[in-house]
């Protein structure tokens, strides 16, 4: 057996494999639920209800999708130029760190001023954090997969140190947790009374901007050219290393914006469980989206829906939460496979 690329996939080819992947996930999850002693036929309904079935559920899903859109965009931008940024997790925390550093009283400005300033500095911090691996790569050929991945551990330990030390909230009853943001530094809700903050809108706007940059700007053209064929890009006069550095700055900035959005929009303070691996899940989101920035939004909603829905299902059906984890993993694996099958056909020899 081998895979053969499909040049112009038909509508059916684009639709059928993902639909099959979803169905298979549901079947497997139902079987597992049955083994765990629940009614297998209720699983699908409970997931959908848990992810989209109520206003609360829907908003929960959108909230969950927000950081995934940012990290998904960060990864999609970088991977498009074949710059393998595995460090969106650290860059997200860098944005979060700046948010609590400046937002807990250091700057006492009105919302309209403090929020953009914090957001900009957060973006800057994330960009700088990725600049180091980018320069190591372009100057010395150090593999960015290794550096960005290791940066995650270093940076998380650094945050942990700060939260146990200088950043620790004196009112936090001994928990490793920062002080809370001042009200001016909180991202307001989009609609009063609904638990959805402007971070989600910012994520959508970011996706649109990245899409515009990739399809319309010279920078986006350069990034795609470098990603597809470095040698030809260099021959034509595209400054390959400079483009890689710019890509890294953009990618790091996007992930950091996700950290800002999580802290200022949702959590209000910084803890070590701010991100349950948003940086890594961002890689899956970007791959599901085939690195398309608008696809990232859809993929993030899908992944968030599965997360929220499966969690809710496990509570409602009274099955262990492991089942939700298994389901998330299976659905992502099958979906990655399905997306591949939309672009390749399996030929039997």
């Amino acid at each position: 057996m081998r895979l053969e690329p499909v040049n112009n996939p038909s509508f059916g080819r684009k639709l059928v494999p993902p639909a099959l992947a979803l169905s298979a996930t549901i079947v497997i999850a139902s079987l597992l639920a049955m083994i765990a002693g629940a009614n297998p036929f209720s699983v699908l309904g409970l997931i959908i209800k848990g992810a989209f079935g109520s206003k609360f559920a829907l908003l929960e899903t959108l909230n969950r999708a927000t950081p995934l859109i940012f990290t998904g965009l960060a990864v999609a931008v970088a991977f498009r130029a074949k710059f393998w940024n595995i460090g969106a997790e650290a860059q997200l925390y860098a944005g979060a760190l700046i948010t609590v550093l400046l937002g807990t009283g250091a700057l006492a400005w009105p919302s309209g001023l403090i929020l953009p300033v914090i957001a900009l500095i957060a973006v800057f911090a994330g960009a700088i954090l990725l600049l180091v691996p980018a320069l190591l790569k372009t100057r010395f050929g150090v593999d960015e997969v290794v550096t960005t991945l290791l940066f995650n551990f270093i940076f998380l330990l650094f945050i942990s140190m700060l939260l146990e030390g200088p950043l620790k909230d004196p009112m936090g009853m001994g928990w490793p947790k920062s002080a809370r943001l001042i009200p001016e530094a909180r991202l307001p809700r989009i609609v009063d009374g609904l638990r959805l903050h402007w971070g989600f809108a910012l994520a959508i706007i970011s996706a649109l901007c990245v899409w515009l940059i990739q399809t319309r700007s010279t920078l986006g053209y350069e990034m795609r050219a470098v990603g597809l064929n470095k040698q030809a890009a260099g021959f034509a006069g595209i400054p390959v290393n400079l483009v890689l550095v710019k890509t890294a700055l953009l990618s790091g900035g996007l992930a950091a914006l996700g950290g800002f959005s999580e802290v200022a929009g949702l959590k209000g303070s910084l803890t070590l469980d701010l991100s349950p691996g948003f940086g890594y899940t961002g890689i899956i989101v970007a791959m599901l989206a085939l690195l398309n920035p608008l696809g990232v939004v859809i993929a993030a909603l899908f992944v968030a829906g599965i997360f929220v829905g499966a969690d809710s299902m496990s509570r409602a059906a009274d099955v262990p939460t492991y089942l939700a984890d298994i389901m998330q993993a299976i659905s992502l694996l099958l979906m990655v496979l399905a997306i591949m099958l939309t672009r390749f056909r399996v030929v039997r020899d």
Binding site: R224, A225, L228, N229, A232
Partner: peptide, 12 residues
């Protein structure tokens, strides 16, 4: 390898 980018279209 150097003259063109295979996956770019003619315009690009």
């Amino acid at each position: 390898k150097t003259g063109t980018i295979a996956d770019f279209d003619l315009t690009e």
